[in-house]
Design a protein around this nucleic acid. Structure first.
Lengths: 157, 157
DNA sequence: CAAGATTGAGGATTCAATCTTC
DNA sequence: GAAGATTGAATCCTCAATCTTG
């Protein structure tokens, strides 16, 4: 057990970082909700569909892409279908399983949401980074991601 | 409208950063849950109480400290009280309003949680940062926080 | 019965309405 | 009636159970 402990500067850094995250996330959520009328979760679904061929995916594929529970996707799709953001259709070859596709309305909403999202990210994140800061953050982030082996980390339990 | 748009390197940076956040948050949540049996929200409450004088706060003060809805705090306290993590007591002077305090058990749990939390933060965050990366992140984070004027940002609506 | 999807119950969070104490 | 706190209804998410198709 390495038991290295944190200085007060370390804690200050941690708290700044956490608070900045919170601010960025809540500003983006708020902008999407206020200007397009969708949640961050709904935006994720719309974007995943918009990226897919024919704007169509199966539920399982959506869940995998978003790293969500299949049932979460299913429940959310039910609500989004009621709001005419997506359609559930019969899929592929000789009429079988269900597939999810963007509705015309969903496509328009996605378009607007992408603009709102991009300008939020620029304003809050990109435009406030110097080149050096950007590369520092990039390097650190990639290291964290690549070292994230265990699913939830029983962490030397 | 400034309409600056993002390069693919900008997007890659954004996605790395978001994913790193997700990894860090889920590892810490998982460690707290697996090793101490509490959620991140519960940890926040315990820590706020532990920091307060007499380990006691009113609900409103807790909500303000955590930047949460008062009702969220109230609901969570009810669950935590049932699990004997906190007590609700009569407060101050000539016996009036309610106050929340750490139970003996809550205090022990907090102790353990602080250790788990600190070692997670060290492992995931602090120990992976060079001095330059740390100062880059610190500078950026502080700028984001200090510029977060509007509550939810109608953002040039 | 295996893969894919949905459903239902229970927990967590928010908003609005209510209760309590001065 | 104003400040502080709780409660209830509605929404969203997780987990487990179920339904459906081949």
């Amino acid at each position: 057990m390495k038991r290295r402990s944190m200085s007060s500067a370390d804690w200050a850094l941690w708290h700044s970082w956490m608070e900045a995250q919170r601010v960025v996330a809540s500003q983006i959520d708020g902008a999407l909700q206020a200007r397009v009328g969708i949640s961050k979760a709904e935006f994720s679904v719309l974007r995943a569909l918009g990226t897919a061929a024919d704007s169509t995916l199966r539920v399982g594929a959506l869940a995998a892409a978003l790293q969500w529970e299949k049932s979460r996707v299913s429940h959310l799709l039910t609500r989004m279908e009621n709001r005419r953001l997506v359609d559930r259709r019969e899929a592929g070859a000789p009429g079988r399983r269900t597939a999810v596709t963007l509705s015309h309305h969903g496509d328009e909403v996605l378009e607007a949401a992408l603009n709102v999202h991009e300008s939020s990210v620029v304003d809050l994140f990109i435009s406030r980074l110097t080149r050096d800061q950007a590369s520092a953050i990039r390097t650190w982030s990639d290291r964290v991601i690549s070292t994230a082996s265990s699913p939830i980390a029983p962490a030397s339990l």
